[in-house]
Amino acid sequence: MKVEMIKKAFRVAFPYTVPIFAGFWFLGLTYGIFMHAAGFSFWYPALMSLTIFAGSVEFLTVPMLLGPFAPLSALAITLMVNARHLFYGISMLEKFRGTGWKKPYLIYGMCDESFSINFTAHIPAEVDRGWFMFFVTLLNHIYWFTGALLGGLCGAWLHFNTAGLDFVMTAMFVVIFFENWRQEERHESSLWGLGISVVSLVVFGAGHFIIPAMLGILGVLTWRRGRREMEGELVK
């Protein structure tokens, strides 16, 4: 029975997403309140959480929307921040094969959390992989959207002083940086990322430093690859 198969996939997928529910509601609510505090109607977080569905870059749209109109810089920042999705995609090429009409949605909704679950979960043989991954992605999408929508709506009713709330974005990236740092064998590229960005910030100023910093990072990492190959480190 097809319906039974779908139900079974849902029952297996749901428990995997419960921790994501807690996290997405917390961050989604904060994101909605953050957007409200920045002067945006709840339509903005609702629309963006539904269509973009990439948490970190959605936080970054707030300074983009408040600063001078710079669409190319917005595109460049998004490409760099989300560049990791390229590598998620490369890892999922095999796993998404044969999932039929669900495949475009699986790719579309491949945020960090959906990727982490779908990449690492041990799906029992009797459960349909395509439906399992579909429900993981869909549930995460729903959690994020409802959290951001509620945050955007509640922002209007919650009358508290939001000064300093913007630090939530800084805290999030510091934690991500720190966790990535702990997993690194060597910290060279993290240090290059910090160093090049600081130099670029000092030279070009807060409004214009991102693109030079990105070019610098790509350039230096490409140059270092040559060096590390010569040192025999990257034989594989």
Binding site: S56, R84, I90, I196
Partner: peptide, 24 residues
């Protein structure tokens, strides 16, 4: 080259984002 970037780019980009958040 793409596989190499996949390994080294995330750390550098997260570092850049931390600076981006502190830029003001």
């Amino acid at each position: 080259y793409i596989r190499y970037l996949g390994r080294v780019l995330p750390g550098a980009v997260f570092g850049m984002l931390v600076i981006y958040c502190l830029k003001d």
